[in-house]
Simulated assay, not measured.
Amino acid sequence: MTNNSPQYTFLSLGDSYTIGESVPETDRWSVQLATMLREQGVNVANPDIIARTGWTTEELQAAIKSSGNTKTYNLVSLLIGVNNQYRGQSLEKYRSEFNALLQTATQYAGGNKARVFVLSTPDWGVTPFAASQNRQKIATEIDAFNAVAREECQKAGIAYVDITPISRTASGDLSQIADDQLHFSGKMYRQWAEKALPLVKSWF
């Protein structure tokens, strides 16, 4: 692909893991993915991001509506669910709201669900922040939320990228943890981008 090719657009939706809490902008997983795609000849812009630390599915949907963003994109990603789990919200509520977000993401992709992908929720229970908490309970709950997300993606025909096992490799490895001891580092986010790269590159 030459430099004269049209630049593809990218929208990344989510929470702290998408906005990259406690890491530089260049270390955000979706920004790293865009960089990797360009290195492989796919002329994609750095993503527009609608994400904030602490957001649940409901809060992300509300923020999308209030953003007034009516653009369409060549690529749309969604990573959401950890705050639903953290706040003890029900799987039923998550399923309904996550499904609505899949529809929203597809709308942003111009109705092309083949250009939408979801990343699974990582396991924050491996972080130092969770040392005083029941890590097995956190892991079990994260897995349950991810099972719902995977099911809804399968029903909708949307690609699902499971990065949760990768997140668990951060246990005892502070190089994969951000300075706040709760979120992940750019080193971890790079692995997520590498996991998504073959799938996303195959679309262009």
Rank of each mutant, 00 (worst) to 15 (best):
R135E: 13
Y86G: 08
P198Q: 10
T127G: 09
V76E: 02
K195M: 09
Y108M: 09
V118A: 08
A147M: 08
T56I: 01
G54H: 06
V44S: 09
V44T: 13
R38N: 13
K93M: 12
T104C: 00
G111E: 10
S30I: 05
D179N: 15
T127W: 00
V82K: 07
G81C: 03
R190D: 14
I64G: 05
A51T: 05
I19H: 05
Y73W: 08
Q191W: 04
T106R: 00
E25T: 12
S185A: 14
L13T: 00
S30C: 10
A105S: 04
L119V: 01
D123V: 04
S16D: 13
E58K: 08
T106D: 06
E151P: 01
A100N: 13
Q191M: 13
I49H: 08
L33G: 01
E21D: 13
G54T: 07
A100Y: 01
F145D: 00
L199D: 04
T169Q: 14
Y17L: 15
K113Q: 01
R115S: 14
D15Y: 02
E39G: 12
S132G: 12
T104D: 12
K155C: 03
K195Y: 06
G88Y: 03
M188Y: 03
I138F: 07
A170I: 02
L37K: 02
E59R: 11
E92G: 03
K113W: 05
I49Q: 06
E39H: 10
N83T: 07
E59I: 07
M36G: 01
L33H: 06
R150C: 10
S132C: 08
W203C: 08
A105D: 02
E25M: 11
L75G: 04
V126T: 09
Q181H: 14
T140V: 11
L197N: 03
S67L: 02
G14C: 06
I177R: 10
V116T: 06
R150S: 12
